[in-house]
């Protein structure tokens, strides 16, 4: 693997992980009694930026390296499901994760105090944040399974 692809893969993993940590932080802060909306929104924007970096790095790596070098090794090896099930799911979930996070960040930025007073909106925002965090964790664990399948 060239230095470029190794760098892209490391960037993909670390920025994705940063996104997961910030998404978790958003959920955690939303569950607090006193909500500091701008702090939470800032974390959501950090998560969004991290996912975008991970998206571009991972996409480039997949397009130029994974498809022609890693994928054939996995599908012809002992663990073809690592690609067929997990990579195929991961790449589709990963497509909308940054946009769901951006939607969350924008909602937190532009709803003002409504989110504090409107319990239904607050519940919906917490649900969205929880769903993003859960999906991001699933994508992360899928990444480990995919890497493990390439031998």
């Amino acid at each position: 693997m060239s230095t470029l692809f190794a760098t892209l893969l490391i960037l993909h993993i670390l920025s994705g992980l940063t996104g997961v940590i910030y998404s978790f932080r958003v959920t955690f802060l939303l569950l607090k009694k006193e909500i500091v909306q701008m702090t939470i929104a800032r974390s959501a924007y950090f998560a969004f930026a991290s996912y975008i970096i991970s998206w571009v790095a991972g996409g480039w790596y997949y397009w130029k390296y994974y498809g022609s070098n890693v994928k054939p090794a996995i599908t012809s090896g002992d663990f073809p499901w690592a690609h067929i099930v997990f990579m195929e799911s991961k790449e589709h979930i990963f497509l909308f994760l940054p946009f769901a996070t951006l939607a969350l960040a924008l909602t937190l930025s532009f709803t003002g105090d409504v989110i504090i007073t409107n319990s239904r909106l607050k519940r919906a925002v917490i649900f969205l944040s929880l769903a993003i965090t859960a999906l991001a964790i699933i994508v992360t664990l899928s990444g480990i399974l995919i890497s493990g399948g390439a031998r």
């Binding site: 893969l9 399974l145 890497s147 493990g148 399948g149 031998r151």
Partner: peptide, 25 residues
Amino acid sequence: LVLSIVTGFGFLILDKFTDNTAELY
């Protein structure tokens, strides 16, 4: 928790680049 998770993933990356991917299962 954050320090353990980040460094833990560092080990997984290291496993990947040293062709030690069996460890990931």
